[in-house]
């Protein structure tokens, strides 16, 4: 059972990355365009209520890809909108955050203190 659980995380996570790869190779998008597209896709899926079932199914296979970032923000905004109506759509934007962003800022800052750019090929 636990094996199926991990397998689902692997396959769903891998497939989301495959979509990203196709956007880059076939769609000729830059990485920034690709990731922005995936984030927007995550938001839309969250709006349709389809992202949570994906998380229930695949766990980290759905929470680790960047699409989950759009999902987290949208789910937060919708929850606020449900509670407070029109005002909630706005205030929701100030409430919702993503741990990925905060962590990246903190660790990015720390990394800048510790590391030097490498620029070595091998």
């Amino acid at each position: 059972m636990i094996f199926i659980d991990f397998l689902l995380a692997f396959v769903i996570g891998g497939l989301i990355c495959v979509i990203g790869q196709l956007l880059m190779d076939v769609g000729k998008l830059t990485p920034a365009h690709t990731l922005s597209t995936l984030v927007v896709a995550g938001s839309i899926l969250a709006g349709l209520g389809w992202y949570q079932p994906l998380i229930d199914l695949a766990g980290a296979g759905a929470t680790i890809p960047i699409t989950s970032f759009g999902n987290a923000l949208t789910t937060g905004a919708i929850a606020e909108a449900e509670k407070h109506g029109w005002v909630g759509v706005l205030t929701g934007m100030f409430e919702v955050t993503s741990s990925g962003i905060s962590a990246a800022i903190v660790f990015g800052f720390i990394a800048a203190l510790i590391f030097k750019p490498k620029g070595k090929v091998n």
């Binding site: 880059m24 590391f115 750019p117 490498k118 620029g119 090929v121």
Partner: peptide
């Protein structure tokens, strides 16, 4: 100089972008 050119024209040197076969160093 590799580092100063790459970061101006492309990405930070430690960024993990995929370069195609036509790319040059």
């Amino acid at each position: 100089q590799h580092n100063s050119i790459e970061r101006q024209f492309r990405y930070p040197v430690d960024y993990g972008g995929q370069k195609p076969e036509t790319a040059q160093w």
